[in-house]
Design a protein around this nucleic acid. Structure first.
Lengths: 333, 333
DNA sequence: TTGTAAGCGTTATCAC
DNA sequence: GTGATAACGCTTACAA
């Protein structure tokens, strides 16, 4: 292991000078710079970031805590984060929680132990405990996709209620009578917000909100399938459904297909969040599209800014969704 | 910042004892253990992993170097790695190369600087330079998905040539006459292997290998689209295509659809690697399915084993693919 | 501008 | 079994 002392010795300067050359803040005699650079090359010296981190008491690691890398929504978001992080000199540590608060806690513990520079998190639970642990340790936190009640942190969201309202309204205005809603876990803010948007659309059109047309599921494909099945088993089954995320939409459509219910003629479907290659799916799916990559990018930018300017007040950025009408919600005439 | 000294003071023991209690290797008097634990709780002491890493001169970080988290193939693979890593006490750092050797080099530099415990890599280039840098620094490397010529490392692959041969053979046996191939970049081993499998299937059936029916593309959706377009512009266009990865398959099908060419009646399609919700796509896609999650899991297990047993000889694990016949390759009668 | 030296917070090697 | 103490490799006052 070649250290800064080896380089110093070879270049016949002090370790401090080597450090100065490498970090290039203070000015160093050009001759010495040349000697140091040569020694670095000759010895193939690689600065030890662990030692540097200890000395500076900060690292260049960001934790990105999400519920599932398998979901293209989070994938795209992570990509946005990573692109910004890399450019700013940070690396991204991936933390899958599977919506499990215990896993979330473990990752927070790791982030704390490893003195990570910051955390971008889509919280799994309603409790603010994990985020508070980070904040009280002085670790900057950016909430992404999901709000954290009662805590002041930088936050990046989309207009969930609005998007859901558009989606539901679109179904109602298209002539569907009994529009159901499959939303996510009660403890997740997006699930609640999207359900609210759904309810608001019904109310504003004088349609009664019927509880038996609402299902709380898990944001996963299987959950969407099961919820749809359960809705169809009602005495008075829905003729349309709004699903509050991409995977549940896929599950719901699969269920409808398997039961021989034609979409959109016998049942209309709108999902929240797009899926990749939506164009290949038949019928193509009407969705509330989110700027997923931008979501990640924005969160990363907020984190980077907070790291350089820790004192400033937390801000919340709300990005806009967009209803993309495709086949699954439009009955012929 | 509460350190091990604070805990020691409060528990009226030495820092060494605190360390021993926390790491629990050597035996410590139960009384002292209790006092230390209490002090840890009261002070909410969190060991500083950075300091520990410096002292131990090893970390608990793995780098996973892939070309794109946006591709569900890599997503699933990463998931497999992460599940194993977490259980073994490691965190996963995500490194997107976009098939760019320069980016790959930057990430290797970071892995080296951060003294990461190991690297799982799907190499972007043909050059072994980056991997050699890691190996000569003593960092264990596991090659995943793509082979690294001329270097002895643990490797996890699938039977690429075999899968491609099955896929192509299936098209030929189904009566398609002019089967084209859209493969990946020449420098990537999987692209080469899959092309070879394609050629072998042709040869074994006495069908001449025609170079103008082969395209080297980029493993991305747009690339697949462009390659398909270019094939269709040939004087003697193909009536079937084998695409060497999932995204290019999607692109190829989109191109065919846009040109009004019906799949599978006018053109048959088989892709390498599955896509999520393949069942919703119409026509559903015949694919060579890979055990993506297993691929990641296996690589992670190999890495974990090498970390505990550095001396053992590198091994190569080849997992099996499976042809899943769906609609896109089967002309009615 | 350059060098000396004191840490950063652990763990591990010694004595006891 | 326990406690001093010396590293681990770097950065940064401070002194020269």
């Amino acid at each position: 292991m070649v250290t800064i002392y080896d380089v110093a010795q070879r270049a016949a300067v002090s370790p401090a000078t080597v450090s100065r050359v490498l970090n290039g803040r203070s000015s160093v005699d050009p001759d010495l710079v040349a000697r140091v650079r040569q020694a670095v090359d000759e010895l193939d010296y690689r600065p030890n970031a662990v030692a540097r981190n200890l000395r500076r008491s900060r690292t260049t690691l960001w934790a990105v805590v999400i519920s599932d890398v398998g979901n293209p929504f989070f994938t795209s978001l992570v990509r946005g984060v990573e692109d910004v992080a890399q450019r700013a000199g940070y690396s991204v540590v991936l933390c899958n929680t599977d919506e499990d608060p215990a896993k979330e806690a473990r990752y927070v513990t790791a982030a704390l132990a490893d003195r990570m520079a910051g955390v971008i998190i889509s919280v799994a639970g309603r409790s603010t405990a994990q985020v508070s642990r980070l904040l009280s340790a002085g670790v900057p936190v950016v909430a992404i996709d999901r709000e954290i009640a009662g805590v002041q942190v930088d936050t990046v969201l989309v207009d969930n209620a609005h998007g859901a309202e558009l989606a539901t309204g679109h179904l109602l205005d298209g002539g569907y009578q009994r529009v159901a809603c499959i939303t996510g876990p009660r403890r997740v803010s997006t699930a609640v917000q999207r359900l609210r948007g759904y309810q608001k659309a019904l109310r504003s059109r004088g349609v009664p909100v019927r509880e038996h047309l609402v299902r709380y599921s898990d944001f996963r494909e299987e959950g969407g399938y099961a919820a749809m099945a359960s809705l169809l088993d009602e005495a008075d089954p829905p003729d349309a459904v709004f699903a509050a995320n991409n995977l549940m939409t896929v599950g719901a459509v699969e269920c409808l297909t398997n039961r021989g219910i034609a979409v959109p003629t016998q049942a209309g479907v709108v999902g929240f969040d797009d899926i990749p290659w939506a164009d290949l799916v038949r019928p193509s799916l009407t969705t509330v599209a989110q700027p997923t990559y931008e979501l990640g990018r924005t969160a990363a930018v907020l984190l980077a800014e907070r790291l350089t300017e820790p004192g400033r007040a937390p801000s919340t950025v709300t990005l806009h969704t967009q209803l993309k009408v495709r086949e699954s919600s439009t009955r012929g005439a």
